[in-house]
């Protein structure tokens, strides 16, 4: 017997491609723009969101029958905020270096609309195990796009990956820079993320025509 039933597997796999929160549902764009100038920040953000979404979805799912519907959005917000503050404190205490590089990003998790979206659309109506898988799946789908965007923006914008130079030294003119290549400063600023996300959406829809909405 497989560990996950087919339905459960789809909960994880769907958001990675055909129901991706960023490229298909166009949620979570704000943080995708803000933090993807560097690959490291993208990876760290992806991991943090996986944690917050996995745990948050389970908490909301466990409470789904007792949450008063009138204040459910507030309750969801409180759950996300609490988890985020806990992550922040634990990082500060046990991984101080990492928490410094994360700085403002941790707080940004609270504003991630994918998290609220999954609480509202899935965890409120499903059991904890399925909610957990859904949370992990959507966070992975978000993370994959984040890392792809971060990869291209850091490579083309700074000529580095994870802060390590991969194209040569732009000041001493070595490597690619010796033959006249220049870093594209535009890639560093947030609008470039929109363009990269746009290209990913384009590639994805041209490979799978079923994703194209009717006009």
């Amino acid at each position: 017997m497989a560990i996950l039933s087919k339905k459960d597997t789809n909960l994880i796999l769907d958001p990675l491609a055909d129901n991706n929160p960023i490229t298909i549902q166009v949620l979570g764009i704000c943080s995708a723009l803000a933090i993807t100038a560097e690959l490291q920040a993208s990876v760290v953000m992806a991991i943090s969101v996986i944690f917050v979404m996995g745990v948050g979805n389970v908490v909301i799912s466990l409470l789904r029958n007792v949450i008063p519907s009138k204040i459910r959005i507030i309750v969801q917000l409180v759950v996300v905020a609490t988890l985020v503050i806990m992550v922040d404190q634990v990082l500060k205490a046990f991984a101080y270096e990492l928490s410094k590089t994360l700085g403002a990003f941790i707080g940004l998790i609270i504003t991630n609309c994918i998290i609220m979206g999954r609480f509202e659309a899935f965890a409120l109506g499903n059991g904890p195990w399925r909610s957990f898988l859904d949370g992990i799946g959507n966070a992975l789908g978000y993370g994959v796009i984040l890392i792809m965007v971060g990869f291209f923006r850091e490579l083309l914008g700074s000529g580095t990956l994870f802060g390590m130079p991969v194209l040569g030294d732009p000041i001493a003119k070595t490597g690619l820079y010796a033959i006249g290549y220049e870093n594209n400063g535009f890639m560093i600023i947030p609008p470039a993320a929109l363009i990269v996300v746009g290209i990913i959406i384009w590639v994805q829809r041209s490979r799978n025509k079923a994703l194209i909405e009717e006009a």
Binding site: N65, V66, I67, P68, K70, I71, I74, V75, V78
Partner: peptide, 19 residues
Amino acid sequence: MAINTDKNGYTVIFASIMV
């Protein structure tokens, strides 16, 4: 037994406990 989560009293109690 299902709880009636729409009552105002319940909402207030839930919110207080949550806080």
